[in-house]
Amino acid sequence: MTDNLARLSELGVSIWLDDVSRRRLNSGNLAGLVRDKHVVGVTSNPTIFAKALSDAADYDEQIRELAGRGASVDAAVKEITTTDIRNACDLFRDVYDASGHVDGRVSIEVDPRLAHDTDKTVAEALDLWKTVDRPNLLVKIPATEDGLPAITRTLAEGVSVNVTLIFSVERYRAVMDAFISGVEQAKANGHNIAELHSVASFFVSRVDSEVDKRLDKIGTDEAKALRGKAAVANAVLAYAAFEETFSTDRWRTLAAEGANAQRPLWASTGVKNPDYSPTLYVDELVVANTVNTMPEATLDAVAEKSELRGDTVTGNAGEAQAVFDALAAVGIDISDVFVTLENEGVEKFEKSWQELLESVDGQLKAAKEG
Rank of each mutant, 00 (worst) to 15 (best):
D18G: 03
D19H: 13
S21A: 02
S21N: 03
S27I: 02
S27G: 13
R35P: 01
D36C: 00
N45C: 07
P46A: 08
T47Q: 13
F49L: 04
D58P: 05
E65S: 14
R86V: 05
N87L: 11
N87T: 09
F92C: 08
R93H: 10
R93Y: 07
R93K: 11
D94G: 03
D97L: 15
I108H: 09
D119I: 06
K120V: 08
L128H: 08
K130V: 04
D133T: 09
L138S: 03
I141C: 07
A143L: 08
R153H: 07
I166C: 03
V169D: 08
M176S: 05
M176D: 01
D177W: 02
F179D: 03
G182T: 06
G182L: 09
Q185E: 14
G190L: 03
K213L: 01
E222I: 03
K229I: 00
N234W: 01
N234L: 04
A240G: 15
E243K: 14
F246H: 05
A261W: 04
P264S: 13
S268F: 06
T269A: 06
D275V: 08
S277P: 12
S277T: 12
Y281D: 09
V286F: 03
T290W: 04
D311R: 09
N316W: 00
D325E: 14
A329K: 12
V330L: 06
G331F: 04
V346W: 12
F349H: 04
F349A: 11
E350P: 04
E355N: 15
E355T: 12
E358Q: 14
G362A: 01
E369M: 06
